[in-house]
Design a protein around this nucleic acid. Sequence first.
DNA 1: CTAAGATGGACAACCAGGTTGTCTAAAATA
DNA 2: TATTTTAGACAACCTGGTTGTCCATCTTAG
Lengths: 153, 153
Amino acid sequence: MSTGFELPLRLLLGFRVLIDELHEELARQGHPGLRPMHGFVFQAIGPDGTTAVELGRRLGVSKQAAGKTIGALERLGYVERGEDPDDARRKVVRLTERGIDCLVRSAHIFDGLRDRWAAVLGEERLAAMEADLRKVTPEELFRPDFPQWFGGH
Amino acid sequence: MSTGFELPLRLLLGFRVLIDELHEELARQGHPGLRPMHGFVFQAIGPDGTTAVELGRRLGVSKQAAGKTIGALERLGYVERGEDPDDARRKVVRLTERGIDCLVRSAHIFDGLRDRWAAVLGEERLAAMEADLRKVTPEELFRPDFPQWFGGH
DNA sequence: CTAAGATGGACAACCAGGTTGTCTAAAATA
DNA sequence: TATTTTAGACAACCTGGTTGTCCATCTTAG
């Protein structure tokens, strides 16, 4: 019963399982209240920080929407705004210590989840799945405009 | 470079590739303007039709929200409301001929996309991927509350 | 070197899609 | 038969997105 119909749903379901378990574990480790899309935002901000305009471009939303998202994450203590000494117009958005802690923990948790899958499937089979997926998906891992892409009637 | 970080994103990317190609092809075949989530709604409606209350329950949203979605799809010509002879309160929502056409074409397109993946990866490897995904994901394929699940800051 | 244009960010008004609350008609039940 | 439950419509509101406008600042053309 391998209809083409099952494949996309299994892929999505796999993603969902991993993300759900990530957030359960993050909540246990002191980061409750985060939503799946926050990970995308953190990644889009990057290690060197960014600006509202640039963040909006990366996320595929307007700079105003990006500004609101930044404001929300700032209130949660995950990002902070700083001045740019080279350009008085720009406000650089950076991850706070708490934001970085969240990223580090996420990486560890993802590694642990991958280990669990490897224990069930075998490391060889899991590596094969990853290799195969690489063959049929674009190089660049991050398509942070995903939330935008999916929503909307 | 198999960090646990890559796996979920590859799964999501695979899903996205398939869905994007599905909608490109659907647009070519006379169904433009459909969004990824419409497929979920069609599936949630099912072959026998449903009601706004039941649809809301399946999609994980309020009956009012389901009603609005139904209204939008009705305007697009994909569903229609009919009376229930056994219960004058209920308005049964059913797929129109156009809605069914869309579902049939989607099934064919998904089959074709799976064939393309099989040509790249080999039928055996693809079947292995599907089998492995089944081992690490829930039985029930449909979690139509996905849009709801992902969104939200 | 200055004047014109481009850019980053804030603010306001609006829109879409979700929410809850209230209401009516019809069905189920005590 | 009287009461309670249910399906659906309508209204008010909330959130997170949109565009439009504005100002301050940087960049660039003359």
